[in-house]
Structure formats: C-alpha cells, structure tokens
Amino acid sequence: MDETISDSPVPWVADHIRRFVETGGNPRPGSNDLLLTTRGRRSGKLRRTVLVYAVDGDRYVVAASAAGADRHPAWYLNLVADPDVTVQVGPRTIPAVARTATVAERPRLWQMMIAMMPSYQEYRRATTREIPLVILEPRLPASPYRQKV
C-alpha cells in the first residue's frame, strides 16, 4: 500500500502545513496547531491537514467545523471510517485513536474550543449541522510486562 502522505488540496491549508513542517511545528507562535493524518475512506491513501486544538488532559480536541460549511470535512469522514490516526504537535509525532465526543462531553469541550478560537461560534451559527468535536487519544505502546491470555 502506498504510504505517501498527501496534504490537503485546499491551497491555504497546504501552505499552512508547509509552514508547520518548515518551522518544526510552530507556524503561528501563540496558536495551538497540529497536523492530523488520516487514511482516506475510499482511496486508502494517507491524508494530512492542519487544525487548531485544545488540550484535555493527555488528549487533544479538534472541531470538524469546515468553517461552518453544511458538510463535514473529509478528514472527519476519514477518521470515522478508520479511527487510527497520526498527530503531530510541535516536532513530536504520535499514533492516536480518534473518536467523536459524546453528548455528555460536548458542552465542556465546546467551551474549550471557543476559548481557543472564538470564530467557532460563528461557524456554529453558519450551519444547521452539529459540528463534531473529535478527541484524539494517544495510543499507548504495548507494555512488555503485559501477559498474553
């Protein structure tokens, strides 16, 4: 299988990814940006995008806002189909598992996201769809002490 990573076809997103890579993960000092790599649900190819994130304990939270568009972004549909993702925060790349926040988790996480980027309120008003919040949980390495059953 081809493991070449393709960056977002959206020009401004591709430029942002390029700056992220060139700066070692700090394209906008003072902003929380991460790179998210998903596997295309139809193509099977690796796809990369850049997103604003909030930190919730040892997890990262991102919003599938698509700037208030009426359709979910492709990266969100990809991780719903295959939740095994890769996250790069700063220079550190980690394997993670993605999941949509539950109804109970949403209110607190939504407030975190608005605090990170107030324009999410505008995005929510611009669409009739519920903007999914995605929790990215680092995948723990297998313990050498864990016994197989």
Rank of each mutant, 00 (worst) to 15 (best):
E130Q: 10
N78S: 06
P11F: 04
K148L: 13
E137K: 10
L77N: 11
A63G: 09
P11L: 01
P27R: 00
G40I: 03
L36Y: 02
N32R: 10
D7C: 06
F20R: 14
R28E: 08
V50D: 09
D84G: 11
D58E: 15
W12F: 13
V89G: 12
R42M: 10
I94S: 15
A54N: 09
A63F: 04
T49D: 08
R139M: 02
I94M: 15
R124V: 11
L136T: 03
L109S: 07
G57K: 06
L136S: 07
V52Y: 07
N26W: 00
P29L: 06
T4H: 11
Q111S: 06
T37A: 01
A14Q: 09
G57Q: 11
A115R: 03
R92I: 04
L77Q: 10
D70C: 01
P141F: 00
V134C: 07
T86G: 13
A66N: 15
I17N: 15
D15G: 04
P141A: 01
W12D: 14
R42I: 05
V52C: 08
V50L: 06
T102F: 05
A142G: 11
V61M: 02
R59P: 04
D70G: 07
T93W: 04
V52Q: 14
D82P: 04
I17T: 07
V55M: 13
Y123T: 06
Y76T: 02
Y60E: 09
T100D: 13
G25D: 13
F20S: 13
L133Q: 12
W110Y: 03
P29H: 08
S6Y: 14
P118Y: 02
V52M: 13
A104N: 06
T23A: 08
A67F: 11
P91E: 10
R129H: 07
A126G: 11
R139P: 09
L140C: 06
G40E: 14
Y60I: 00
Y145F: 13
V134P: 11
D56L: 01
D58W: 06
Y76G: 05
R47F: 02
V85I: 05
P29R: 07
V103I: 11
T38P: 05
Q111Y: 02
R125W: 02
A96I: 01
K148R: 15
T127I: 12
Y145T: 14
H16C: 00
I114W: 00
P27L: 08
L46G: 03
R28A: 03
E137A: 11
R71L: 07
M113R: 13
R41C: 08
E22N: 06
I5K: 07
R129P: 13
R71S: 14
A54C: 05
A142Y: 03
A98E: 10
Y76R: 05
V55P: 09
A74E: 12
Q121M: 02
P138S: 12
K45G: 05
P83A: 09
A101S: 07
P118H: 05
L77V: 03
H72D: 14
T100Q: 15
V87E: 15
Y145V: 10
V52G: 14
T86M: 08
Y120T: 11
M112H: 06
E137I: 03
G44V: 01
G44T: 01
L36H: 10
G40M: 06
P132S: 08
L46M: 10
R39I: 07
D33W: 04
R47S: 08
Q147L: 14
